[in-house]
Amino acid sequence: MPTRSHGGLGARLRRGVEPAVLLGPGLLFYAVLVGVPVGLVTGYMFARRGRFGGVEWELSLDNFSRVTDSVYLEVFRESLGLALVATVISLAIGYPTAYAIAKLPPRWRTVALVLVVVPFWTNFLIRVYAWIVLLNSQGVLNDVLVGLGVVDERFTLLYTPGAVVVGLVYSYLPLMILPLYAAIEKIDDELLEASTDLGAGRVRTFLGVQLPLTLPGVVTGSILVFVPSLGNFVVPELLGGGKTVMVGNLIRDQFLKAQDWPFGSVLAMMVVVLLVLLFLGQAWVTRRVEGGARA
């Protein structure tokens, strides 16, 4: 029977149909929910702002020159800086944490991992508001420090770029820990033993064996923290007091307040381009590490 023969039409059809069935829903999802919005935003970039939001379909390139104004470039620079600092701090806290979790006895490991994601059970906005209570000049932290005599006068922590970094690190640290844990846990302990047996010290073993092997985890975690940090507008608004403006705020305000969709689209597209470059970088690193491991 033809259907049983490997080279038969049915089998070839099945080979074509299976990927289509498996990939189809995902591809459709992306095409509709990513492709269409990105297409719209691309179109808006070249239009004029409509009176009450929306756009007038009249070709205009004004927004591309506006975005090179130093005010906006400075916002990009500051956003990149804050997101980068938040990522580095998350990595510095996240790596030892993930390492410690990976070395726990299995049942405690599960408990620890659950604890890492527990904050996600509470609404993001409420968790950020909690930091206002902690950090404000009449808040808990000031009360404690003044009460203990550590500082003489109440000081301003809230509404500074530092408070924004604290909020970003707090919000996205779990996204750093989880991929790092997955990467560290995968390492065969025998490789580390081999390294020590061959005379390498702890530092050299870490830098020469463990770190390169966990590099995909480091890169994934860093991107997972960096990307939402860069686009965040809630944390700068609540903890930065609206004075520290990140590119996310700028974009949100163009759509919801200034009703200038074309300019908002240009800003949004700049972020999209930046992120695509980042993901290409991540893919490149992952390929190199995995290729190296096979070789």
């Binding site: 702002r49 005010v71 400075e74 609206g242 700028l250 305000d253 200034a258 200038d260």
Partner: peptide
């Protein structure tokens, strides 16, 4: 109104 909005954007971004 567009100028008002642009000024507010630029002041908050500055």
């Amino acid at each position: 109104a567009a100028i008002y909005n642009q000024i507010i954007t630029e002041v908050t971004a500055s």
